[in-house]
Amino acid sequence: MSIEHREHVGEVTTTPERFENPGISPHRPRLSDEDPRAAKRAERQTILIFTLSILATVGGIVGYFAFPIQAPSLGNVRMSTLTLGLGLGIGMLGIGVAAVHWAKSLMSDVERVEERHVQRSDDATRAAAVEILSTGAAESNIARRPLLKGALGTALALAPLSFLVPLIGNLGADWNVSKFRHTAWAPVNGKLRRLATDPSDRPIKPSDVTIGSVVHVMPQGLPDEPGYLEEKAKAVVLLIRLDPRDLNEPEDRKDWSYEGIVAYSKICTHVGCPVALYERQTHHLLCPCHQSTFDVANQAKVVFGPAKRALPQLPIALDEEGYLVAQSDFLEPVGPSFWERER
């Protein structure tokens, strides 16, 4: 394609296949190019905007000292953030707007043309490069020594292992992934664990749980045990009391509840958010993360959403003092699925 100026399109005797590029359109001068007064005006505007920036920066610094934090008050935090922010914002914006205004009104706006060069090197350069590389390869004598090549490659490939093996080896701590299967509800030294409120860690009697209410509970004493957050992340349970007539329990789970009180893992079987919203009328539990919905009256089976499995149920009973206890740990892993879960 050429960019020469074509004089008369359509009047050539042999019509070309395609139109030809007419070349850059003529430059139109701006007001400030022709009228010195307009240029002066643009200059003054630019100076004014720079001045605004200067004032804003000064104002921001004044704000820093004007709103100290000796006597912390929310008002001071707000004012300090606002004054510093406006100072910084207008200070920066002013510089930017002034510079662009300057460029647009006072700097030359004549477009220029420059040639491009193709990326491909010319044939002579390419030949020279090949020549250099093959000379180097020949001088290194590698071509005729395949074993040397292999040894070099293998050594290079293996060397990073001294870095990677200890790094990756240590990242997973003890790699004992079977911890996913156990929670703090397992009896300790044969003693069943009591259900306790969070955060006050008080044990719970059935009378504390009225019909329709939901309490989130943990094993009593958990906050003082090692790995508290990790254990809590598996052990949180929702305690819900239904009218026993609404409860649809299979034979083998009949003794897992107590007078309509059921306990289900709070950890969603989808990807593990805490399930939170309980609807009394429908007995549905909703996970706010991706809206998996579990039917508490029906073994917390999934009625909607991206989770597949029901929330695991914690078998509960009363101890001799009348507090709710877990009969055992959960009988299946809680939380999201993983590859070897069913093994």
Partner: peptide
């Protein structure tokens, strides 16, 4: 330089105003 450099300050300014308000 003036336009692109100036534009840096404009972006910074706008982000600072967002952070302030």
């Amino acid at each position: 330089t003036a336009k692109a450099g100036g534009f840096f300050f404009i972006v910074f300014g706008v982000l600072a105003l967002m952070g302030a308000t």
